[in-house]
Design a protein around this nucleic acid. Sequence first.
DNA 1: GTTACGTTAGTTAGTAATCACTAACTTTGT
DNA 2: ACAAAGTTAGTGATTACTAACTAACGTAAC
Lengths: 196, 196
Amino acid sequence: MRTEITPRQLEIIEAAGQLITEDGYAKLTTKRLAERMQFSEPAIYRHFASKEAILVGMLEHLTASVQERMAEVALREELPEPRLRAMFDSHFSYFKAHPQYLMAIFASNFMEPSPATEAANMGLMEVMRQHLRAVIGEGQKTGAFTKTISADMLVHIVMGTFRLHMLQWRISGRGFDLTRKGRGLMDAVISLISTK
Amino acid sequence: MRTEITPRQLEIIEAAGQLITEDGYAKLTTKRLAERMQFSEPAIYRHFASKEAILVGMLEHLTASVQERMAEVALREELPEPRLRAMFDSHFSYFKAHPQYLMAIFASNFMEPSPATEAANMGLMEVMRQHLRAVIGEGQKTGAFTKTISADMLVHIVMGTFRLHMLQWRISGRGFDLTRKGRGLMDAVISLISTK
DNA sequence: GTTACGTTAGTTAGTAATCACTAACTTTGT
DNA sequence: ACAAAGTTAGTGATTACTAACTAACGTAAC
């Protein structure tokens, strides 16, 4: 996929994520980013070729995180239904610990539709979709999930429910417990697609 | 709610929507907006006090449209299930006819979290939520929809599915039939929440 | 050991371009 | 006569990014 990132690059990515989440993408400027990093503006360009490269780096970092965490969950949980729950639990924990990436998921679709950011964003969406698709397809095989609706549509419904939950957490200013409410929601949607 | 808008204001709102949908919010500038309107930049300020006011106007215009269309659907369709389908059909037709507003729905959450735009955006979300909530609550009363899950959660699942569908239509460059695929999806989610 | 050299990561100062918006004037329709 | 809606010209502020310089550090020849 991509080349490794340095610790310093990760620091910058995290700071950029903070600024986006706090004040919106429009207020992510190199000046503010440098202030947050406690160094001068041009120092940014020792670590990234451009502002766009920081965004792409952020999306690739998120994609790698999803890959890792979903692989870990797959080792830990065998059965489709518990695995599906564990996948969302993992997402909830991750975004609680790294709320600075919350907006990146959503906003990247809209900010600057440059080829590079669009590709990076598509990659992230696709990785999440594929992990969901695998576990839901498996659940249909074992008879845990309904076969009356195609796996792709079930993925869409589950993913749409998850994304809206994340969005509302952000809109509310993280005003509720992401995991507690999220588990309730995902329980609901899983019960709907389950066969029993 | 809000004061009436002039035809010229609506033209500007539509042009702004086009620019956002085509090139992203970051490239909505007063200069480009004036070019699209075929008049000079300062002419914008004869119709709106600020750039922000245009965004707020757009969101309020969308909110009014949802109100009108949902009221019309309510008159036309009595039963919860057909009404729910008709509500989404209305949204699909509207956004096919006015794709320039597609991004506004999503992007407004992220761009400039000013009090005014945030309020306007909350208003739009809330109006959509309430219309869904009413028909789903009614469906639970008549026994058409499951009561094992709270109405609010059902609203969340249905709305999340709808929003992701709209997002994917945009990402694909409107590369598929919004209504055809959308009906399939909403059929699927309605069948999941139906009692039969 | 110390001199020489290259790399990394920072600095100050400044660039052209672009931003939203305004002042002042003119045209147009009733 | 007046108001609404346009014009040209230009504002200061901000944008992403660059040029040029430097302090700190690792390594290797002698």
